[in-house]
C-alpha cells in the first residue's frame, strides 16, 4: 500500500463513518493480474480494499445513475470530466457527490504490453512503472519501455492530468502525454481515401457482435432507452450486420458528441478490438474545432448541444 492509497482509504472510511456519503465507488484489486475491479460499497471496512495503480481503467462515473443517495467517488481526470458533463446535463447533483480526485499519469494498456513483449498477460509476471519508464518482467527477464509506448492512446492525448473538479485530491499530478502519438490511428485514417476508409471500417465493424459493451460503459450514454432498442419505429436492425453495426456506432458517437471526454473505455472494453476511439476522438476534435468546446472541463459552461449561437446557424442547418 502506498501513502496515497492509505490517504484515500482513510478519507473514504471517514466519509462513510461520518455519514457524509452513503456509498463509496472506487477501485479494488481484481481477480486477475493487472486488473482492478469497481468497488461499490456502503461498508466502511471495505475502504481498505481501495487501490490506486496503473490499471484503474474503469470510468466509475457510469455507476452514478444506478445508485441513490450521497456518493463518494474516486475519479481520474477523464472520469472527473465525465462527472462534470453529467452535472451539466443534470444527470447528477453536485451536492450528492464527494469527488475523490486522482491525478493521473496515464494507465497501462495491456494490449500494447502484449504486443510489445509478444507475451500474453497471463505469462507476464510483473509490470511496474517508475516515472517515464515501465518495466515488464517475464520469466525472470526484464524489458524496459518508455511509458509513452505502453499507456493508452487516450492517456497520451490527455487534456488535463489533474481532475477539473474534485473535493479531495490524492497524489501529485504529472503527465507523459504525447498528443501526436495519441492520435496516430486517427492520422492514419485521415491519410486514407474515402474508399479506403470505408473498406477499413467495413472490416472492423464486420467483427462487431452487438454486445453493447461500448454503450454500457459509457457515462455519456445515459439514455434510459437507447434508440437501438426502439421498435416502433425500428431505427436500426438489431442484427449484427456490418452496415448496421457501423450505423449504430456512428449514431452513438454523434449522440455523445460534446459529452465524450475521451476516457477510452469504449475501445478498451470492445471484445473484438474495434478501434472505437478513432471515431470518438475525431468527433471530439471536430466539436472543438467548430465550437471551441471541450467536454467536461467546466461545470458552469453552457451545454454544447443545447447552447446555440446565431452565428452557428449556417453551418449547422446546411
Amino acid at each position: 500500500m502506498t501513502d496515497t492509497e492509505k490517504k484515500l482509504q482513510d478519507k473514504a472510511k471517514e466519509l462513510l463513518e461520518q455519514g457524509k456519503v452513503e456509498h463509496i465507488i472506487g477501485y479494488a484489486a481484481g481477480s486477475l493480474k493487472f486488473t482492478t475491479t469497481p468497488l461499490i460499497t456502503k461498508d466502511k471496512d471495505d475502504a481498505r480494499q481501495l487501490v490506486i495503480n496503473p490499471f484503474i481503467v474503469n470510468n466509475l462515473s457510469v455507476f452514478l445513475n444506478d445508485i441513490k443517495g450521497k456518493i463518494g467517488i474516486v475519479a481520474k481526470p477523464c472520469d472527473a470530466r465525465s462527472i462534470v458533463s453529467l452535472l451539466q446535463d443534470q444527470q447528477v447533483a453536485r451536492e450528492n457527490l464527494v469527488i475523490l480526485g486522482l491525478p493521473c499519469q496515464g494507465l497501462i494498456d495491456l494490449r500494447k504490453v502484449e504486443r510489445l513483449t509478444g507475451k500474453d498477460r497471463d505469462d507476464i509476471d510483473d509490470i511496474t512503472r517508475n516515472g517515464d519508464k515501465v518495466t515488464v518482467t517475464t520469466g525472470g527477464k526484464t524489458q524496459k519501455f518508455a511509458a509513452k509506448e505502453v499507456i493508452f492512446d487516450d492517456c497520451l492525448s490527455c487534456e488535463t492530468p489533474t481532475p477539473p473538479e474534485y473535493d479531495f485530491l490524492f497524489g501529485e499530478p504529472s503527465s507523459a502525454t504525447d498528443k501526436e502519438l495519441g492520435r496516430k490511428n486517427i492520422k492514419e485514417l485521415e491519410a486514407m481515401s474515402p474508399q479506403q476508409r470505408w473498406d477499413f471500417w467495413k472490416q472492423e465493424f464486420s467483427r462487431c457482435i452487438r454486445c453493447y459493451a461500448c454503450r454500457q460503459v459509457c457515462p455519456a450514454c445515459f439514455c434510459t432507452r437507447c434508440f437501438i432498442e426502439e421498435t416502433e419505429p425500428q431505427w436500426l436492425s438489431p442484427l449484427p450486420r456490418w452496415q448496421d453495426n457501423l450505423l449504430f456506432q456512428t449514431t452513438r458517437m454523434l449522440h455523445v458528441a460534446g459529452r465524450c471526454t475521451d476516457c477510452g473505455e469504449c475501445e478498451r472494453v470492445c471484445p473484438v478490438n474495434i478501434p472505437l476511439r478513432s471515431i470518438s476522438k475525431k468527433v471530439e476534435e471536430i466539436v472543438d474545432e467548430l465550437f471551441q468546446y471541450k467536454a467536461g472541463m467546466d461545470k458552469n459552461a453552457e451545454r454544447f448541444m443545447t447552447a446555440y449561437e446565431p452565428s452557428e446557424a449556417e453551418d449547422l442547418m446546411r
Binding site: 469497481p38 468497488l39 455507476f63 444506478d66 457482435i209 453493447y212 459493451a213 460503459v217 472494453v269
Partner: peptide, 13 residues
C-alpha cells in the same frame, strides 16, 4: 450485481 454494466460480453462470448 452492483458493478455489472449489463453488457453482452459474458453471454455472447
Amino acid at each position: 450485481a452492483a458493478k455489472c454494466v449489463s453488457c453482452g460480453i459474458c453471454t455472447f462470448l
